[in-house]
Design a protein around this nucleic acid. Structure first.
Lengths: 248, 248
DNA sequence: CGCAGAATTGATACATCTCAAGCTGGGTGG
DNA sequence: CCACCCAGCTTGAGATGTATCAATTCTGCG
């Protein structure tokens, strides 16, 4: 364990910022207590690898703060991001001993880890964890299918617009939003990471970002700070249905 | 309900060909009994739509025999397949009232349907169903991520080879296989459906099929009957790691 | 100041798409 | 039983979007 990968005394679940959205969301206080016994925090610096595909993985975890990515790499180096993990998202698969993907911290990252064995035992005895995990997994599957449409059928411009909309929407659901109008956020990804998310090259990402700026869809301050004068305009560029598709 | 969409008296779960792989795989006989009370069979002809995206969906179901697809369609008609449902696969999401995707029978299809409300109640009381559904959903998520790599980074030739390998492998896991060597199967998809799966046009699919035939990777008898003289050769064309990635 | 990583921009190559013209095989009606 | 028909498929020629290769230009930081 390097000094960049710190195991920390974990704070109380009661104070946890993701308490109500993570895999533990539905737990009663006695269940929470049992989780606390098997949990520990780990921190990673931006750019650090959390785990390599194929490595033994003896824990599962929730992202507490920061952003991590799941990527697959082909033998010749082609890379595709297959997961973007935000606070409260879950990493690892109960019942699997090796990591299936590379997990990387793209920002400074704090994870709440559970030793896998006891976590699995806990899962089989307390339905609340399994229920919540099922719900989260179904949500991820829906997101993956949306992503497949993007990868298979959208143009480069639509892909960029879609990614910006996804990040903007997430940010907006946390912070408050100036109704309907302009707002602002920071890109948590480099151009190359955006390219890996979208199935493009970083040059194409750069060109399309410039094009969206030239056309007034977005504004750029520095490389990472984006402002969107008109969210509806951005949405038009994504190619998606206007009504966000109510799934109930 | 048209005469092509028949509701049938459902046979006994004991005789069910997917009993050991479907969502009911882990159920005890008393749980099975309760499932039997809320289940009914429906049949569809090849080409029929099971349900349209956005429609009210008051059941969930398992595919018993045949093949169905999930597809998303953009306003201008671009289509992307996001799921390929084989016998024992599950359709529908507990806790959601509307279908999120178009579901279509690509072959004649028999589904074992459960009324959604009672199914959800059953799920919350019997952990075996939820456990199995979680496992199946995690498998689907892995498959979706594999698919994302295909869509984002593989060439047309690699996409075709990958799809053929997937179908071949599935067929082989059912039927017996002539060890390592040549074998044979039927494509359950039209060229257009293959294109929708792979994020290509049907012309590109056709050209690459011809190229793989010319290069001796596959043989074609008619349009749909494929034979693979050397499975390893086909695998080399997929671009995937040689060792099938042990996930344990 | 000046270096290094990140990003932009340009010129060209190439894979796939698009549009268009035939082919093929299985089913149907005369 | 044959001719026709039509959906599914193949093949061709040319257009186009994105990748590739190659310079620059930013930006933050030691």
């Amino acid at each position: 364990m390097s000094h960049h990968d710190l195991k920390l005394g974990a704070p109380d679940c009661g104070d946890c910022p993701i308490r109500h959205r993570a895999v533990c969301a539905r737990c009663e206080s006695d269940e929470l207590k049992r989780l606390e016994e098997i949990k520990y925090y780990r921190s990673f610096q931006a750019g650090q690898t959390v785990i390599w595909s194929g490595d033994r993985m003896d824990f599962v975890a929730s992202v507490v703060t920061g952003i991590a990515t799941l990527t697959q790499t082909m033998e010749d180096g082609r890379r595709q991001m297959v997961g973007l993990l935000l606070p409260s998202d879950f990493v690892g698969r109960p019942g699997r001993s090796a990591a299936a993907y590379d997990v990387t911290a793209t920002t400074d990252l704090v994870m709440c880890c559970f030793r896998k064995k006891p976590f699995e035992e806990l899962m089989s005895t307390t339905p609340h964890i399994a229920q919540r995990l099922l719900e989260m997994t179904l949500d991820e599957l829906d997101a993956a299918r949306e992503w497949m449409l993007l990868l298979g059928r959208k143009t480069a411009r639509e892909k960029i617009a879609s990614l910006l909309a996804i990040i903007a929407r997430r940010d907006t659901s946390l912070k408050l939003k100036s109704a309907k109008g302009a707002f602002t956020f920071d890109l948590p990804l480099t151009r190359e990471e955006m390219a890996d998310y979208l199935g493009l090259t970083l040059e194409t990402v750069s060109r399309q970002m410039s094009a969206l700026k030239r056309d007034g869809v977005i504004g750029l301050e520095g490389k990472r700070h984006i402002n969107v004068p008109n969210f509806d305009r951005l949405m038009e560029e994504t190619g998606d249905d206007s009504d966000g598709g109510m799934l109930g």
